[in-house]
Design a protein around this nucleic acid. Structure first.
Lengths: 201, 201, 201, 201
DNA sequence: AATGAATGAGTCTTCATTCAT
DNA sequence: AATGAATGAAGACTCATTCAT
């Protein structure tokens, strides 16, 4: 088998197992048994268990970064709302295709160790920063009302993560309209949960 | 030392270690060294490593459940808004007192194994259900505008979790006005991020 | 079993195996099987395989240092010759009691790795230096004829090592008069191999 | 590349690595990387790791045997002393040219395993025997004073080995007058370290 | 109520060797 | 004559748990 194929094959099996049972519950023995290769072969392609896991997460984070595009406000660009919905939808689609990776990101990669925590924190921080910048811009344009854009950004990120978690809990075969879901989340976040003008009594 | 004292003492040390280094990175050796007890003594009070961890998380979930009170709409009760803010504040305070527990809940307890995942899912599902019921009630009362109360509930939960995560990242000595934070989150969620009447272009 | 007993017991078995088969050919499995203990027990007493080996060699080097005493030239002390013979005899006895350790020192500990080589080199260098100083002193007193005391010191050390090697090759039960052997070596080294006044033609 | 060339090339690289890092610390991977050949190619030329090592040592022992010539006492031959010095010098030169081989012989090949130890012991025993025969002959001729020619032979061998060790420790670029060194060793061994007629007090 | 020595299953990792191409 | 992907036996080490004292 060609090296790149074998590499991909091992990654695939590892992703499924990590996603399914988590990092610690998955042993190298599990991976090689699943992939049908010898023990040594694994170490031919990956430095160690941590290495293959990191590669999976790094790849995922990279694809996530690519999925999230800064809103284009130049004339002729699609509406901002559409672009936001598209961003959300792309991320949702990415995970809906590969539940394993989503599971790894939301479960295994959390609290693995300090080094990994830092990597994840870093990623989320960048995402939060991006959201915050957008909100600040919107604020200057008179669109966004909140002064505390940091908290608002956290809320946006958290909301999105929880929706992903929910996707994970659902049946694999459950057919979900991802674009509609993305639009709904965006609407709730932008318009709030209450009827216009009403306040919680 | 009286049994209940010893038990409490061990739990305390374990909480700090689990919160600090995570479940897998914390060994029984760490715990007994920290608590200053013999190896055998540990097993006199707890069935196993998993047992003490579960006890910590169970206790935490229990206190969380107690912190979250259903909004009292009877006449003479404080305003709904106040009650909601109080709920949020109580939870924030609980964690602010014990960062370790928060860290355990948000990091170590995530993706530990299928059984534990189920326990957490179950808890969060109940919280989501509670939020959803409230939203449905508000909808009937003409206060809440969203039709998809499930998604709205997820958003509320996710937002809150992320704010907790953020608390965790901050400096321990950072003085945060928890009530104000709770109020801010509530406002953003209820009123949305946009200026009233405005839509994303 | 008392910790110090167990420790000694493991050391004993390890010494025999290392001496017999060498460092690399001896596995932890060999040691624990020989000592009749569980795998974990070994690591209760020694950090790792290298650790127990180092402890054996370090202990041996320490005992060697103690065996070799600087010649006492103060009035009333035994004759210099006697003291030298005593030194040699003590070292020979040390090894004759514990062939394993001798074998470890002369075989396993050689060329193990750079770090270990340095440790041994260091020890031998100190021994060489000690011999050299004595020779220089003797030279000043008009006893020693050689100008190049460094080479003479090397010759003395090498001669002695080879005699030890030879002891190792002999049958374990072979009864050797160690004091006589020491005296003989000393005589050859001091008086040379040739008949007095004769030169190699 | 012609088979014999390739073979020689691999041997050369292996010698450098074995000499530098020792047998166990040198892997097949190291050798093929250094020689710039494929893994399979190595096994085309050598049966296994042990095989190439043995070949190197065997070759070295063979060249050593050739370097050491029995003293020719027939009329017209060079003086015995000159022949002995020549012997020593040849061996010193052999190693001075190829430090790696010296290192292999004095470090890696020692204590490798029982089989190899036997091979080395055998070689050294033959050398000792040769020295001993010469000493016995000298004794009969009234030149050599020692009765215990075996010990004297051991001393000679050991002295020489230690001088080689010392050469190994020195800087590679250190310029040493090998013939002078050989003569010095011979003088100390034959005449002893003490001034003629003097005894250790 | 406490101790801590002992256990051993389980895990990761290495590396000499093989063999189909 | 050469390649290099694949193998798997073997080794070191960990750590939750037990149990005699």
């Amino acid at each position: 088998m060609e090296p790149f194929e074998r590499r991909a094959q091992i990654l695939e099996h590892a992703a499924r197992l990590f996603g399914d049972k988590g990092y610690h519950e998955t042993s190298i023995s599990d991976i090689i048994a699943s992939a049908g290769i010898a023990r040594g072969t694994f170490y031919l392609y990956f430095e160690n268990k941590r290495g293959i896991f990191e590669e999976l997460v790094d790849g995922l984070l990279e694809r996530l970064r690519e999925s999230i595009k800064v809103v284009d406000t130049s004339p002729g660009a699609p509406s901002a709302r559409q672009q936001l919905v598209d961003n959300f939808t792309r991320v949702l689609e990415l995970f809906s295709e590969q539940r394993d990776l989503l599971s790894i990101l939301l479960k295994s990669a959390v609290g693995l160790d300090r080094e990994f925590d830092a990597k994840l924190s870093d990623f989320y921080e960048k995402v939060t920063d991006a959201i915050e910048s957008s909100l600040k811009l919107g604020h200057q344009m008179g669109l966004v009302r909140n002064a505390d854009t940091h908290i608002a950004a956290l809320i946006g990120l958290g909301a999105f993560k929880e929706v992903l978690q929910d996707l994970l809990r659902r049946d694999r075969d459950d057919d979900v309209d991802l674009a509609a879901l993305a639009a709904e989340v965006l609407d709730v976040l932008s318009g709030g949960m209450l009827v216009q003008g009403v306040k919680i009594p």
